[in-house]
């Protein structure tokens, strides 16, 4: 579904990604783990067209999307639940969701998508007229996920969806991701919660200082001594 080859990304002179290659099979959950500053967010932003890589290629669903604009990439069905949720704080919950369906691919089915999101997140329906900025962190994360679904993506990249949430909310967010996966969604999951994400993932890669240092099945990485020492504190 997604194929990243030899991706280099620089911020000025500082290299954030160095020759990153990995693949995401259709219908899989692929986890990307790594310490703070390893380049996980940079990788997602480069794939999504929000940063321009210096070298390498990104292919999604048969299209070469390297260096394409973010709105074009979204319209191909590559969605993103970004770090920090990135909702529109002074706009209502409903407006936030409707804006998610502005991409051409999703526009004409917006009403049906909205119904689906209300069903999935009754909490959001209760608060449909409330400003997004007044929601709790967990509700904002639901909103960010719902807004992404409004764009009818075929693959979603989640960047630290559980960051800063209460344990109950973390549980709920992971349950939603599992459910989307069961419904056939292809998922990339970037998480600081390494244990949970490796458990969930079919496939995972470990990022260190902008390099992929390990790649393999989630369960294999979970059993790997280096991973256990570095990320699980075991």
């Amino acid at each position: 579904m997604l194929d990243v080859r030899d991706l280099d990304l620089f911020y000025g002179d500082a290299q954030a990604l160095a020759g990153v290659s990995f693949g995401v099979p259709l219908g899989s959950i692929t986890a990307i783990v790594g310490a703070n500053g390893a380049g996980k967010t940079s990788l997602i932003r480069a794939i999504a067209g929000m940063e321009t890589p210096r070298a390498g290629t990104v292919r999604f669903d048969g299209h070469d999307i390297t260096g394409r604009e973010s709105f074009e990439i979204c319209d191909l069905g590559l969605g993103q639940v970004a770090e920090g949720r990135q909702v529109f704080p002074t706009m209502s919950v409903e407006d936030n969701l409707e804006l998610g369906a502005m991409v051409p691919r999703a526009r004409k089915d917006a009403a049906a998508s909205l119904e689906r999101v209300w069903q999935m997140f009754p909490r959001l329906l209760e608060r449909r007229r409330q400003m997004a900025g007044t929601l709790s962190g967990g509700e904002q994360q639901m909103l960010a996920i719902g807004r992404c679904l409004m764009g009818q993506p075929r693959m979603i990249m989640f960047d630290e969806p559980s960051l800063g949430l209460s344990p109950a909310m973390v549980h709920e967010v992971f349950a939603i991701i599992r459910r989307l996966h069961e419904e056939g969604m292809t998922i990339v999951l970037v998480e600081q919660n390494v244990a949970v994400s490796l458990h969930m993932a079919d496939h995972a890669c470990v990022l260190e200082n902008g390099h992929v240092v390990m790649e393999g099945r989630g369960s294999d990485l979970l059993g790997d001594d280096r991973v256990r020492a570095a990320y699980l504190g075991l």
């Binding site: 970004a82 990135q86 529109f88 704080p89 502005m102």
Partner: peptide
């Protein structure tokens, strides 16, 4: 609304594929 969204959160606007 899309224009207001750009003013409200530019990163968010790009995340959801607004032009």
């Amino acid at each position: 609304k899309a224009i207001r969204a750009c003013a409200d959160n530019l990163v968010g606007a790009r995340v959801i594929g607004l032009n």
